[in-house]
Simulated scan of single mutants.
Amino acid sequence: MEILLTKAPGGALIPLDDEQAEKIRKFKPGGVIRANIAQARNAAFHRRWFKLVNWAYDIWSETAEMPTHRGQPIQPNFEKFRKDVTILTGYRHMVVGVNLEIRWEADSISFASMDNETFESLYSKTIDVIIGKVLSDPKLTADEVREHIDYLMTFDG
């Protein structure tokens, strides 16, 4: 069971809300409770990363030359783009498929898998990837790149 707590001014950990308090009431008074405490990541910062990646995806999907396969155009895919950006930031691991093909898979960016410090590093490296892989497209004019860089810098900080 996961219980969300907040630190009170006196240092005590108290339930975040009524739902969390109800979970605690299920424990018997005087019983021993084992807990693994971790500070939750900032959800707003997590949403901001997705907004950043969505913005970059919109630019990339409009400017990148999409390949064709047997005469059929291949459509861009946000999930693949998001995972590729994560891989390019260095947050990745090797996997092997049943056909023995080895490839990179993106590490999970879930709250349970990545602490604040690691996520901040991912965020910063994501900006670097966007500059190097999305905004370096030769189809973009110098003015467009400057405009995109100016907007991108609103995400930094």
Rank of each mutant, 00 (worst) to 15 (best):
E19C: 15
A142M: 10
L152Q: 08
V96D: 00
L13D: 00
K139H: 13
W49I: 00
P29S: 06
E62S: 15
P138R: 05
S124P: 10
K139W: 06
R41H: 02
L152T: 06
I37Q: 01
A56V: 03
V145I: 14
H148T: 04
D115L: 07
T126N: 01
L4A: 12
E101T: 11
D115N: 15
G71A: 08
E79C: 04
K80V: 08
V134L: 03
Q20F: 09
T6R: 14
T118L: 07
A44P: 07
F119D: 01
A21N: 07
V96Y: 05
G97M: 10
D137N: 14
S121L: 13
L52P: 06
R34N: 02
W55K: 01
T68P: 02
Y151P: 02
A35W: 11
D17L: 14
A21K: 11
A35Y: 13
D128I: 14
Q72R: 02
M114Q: 06
L52H: 02
N77D: 15
A106N: 03
V32T: 14
E2T: 00
K125F: 12
G97A: 13
R103E: 01
L135H: 09
G90M: 05
R70K: 14
Q20I: 04
A112Y: 09
I33C: 07
P67I: 11
K51S: 15
E19L: 15
V85E: 01
P15M: 10
M1Q: 13
V53T: 06
R48N: 12
E105R: 07
Y57V: 01
G90N: 07
R41G: 06
K133D: 12
S121Y: 08
R70N: 15
L5T: 02
L140S: 06
I24Y: 07
W49Y: 08
V145Y: 05
E2C: 00
E79F: 09
P73T: 12
A35R: 14
R146N: 12
F119N: 01
L88Y: 06
R92C: 07
M114T: 07
L122Y: 05
E65F: 04
A142D: 15
A112N: 11
D58W: 04
E105P: 01
Y57K: 02
A35S: 11
E22H: 13
Q39V: 14
K23M: 10
M153V: 11
P29Q: 00
S108I: 01
V85R: 02
V129Q: 01
N54L: 07
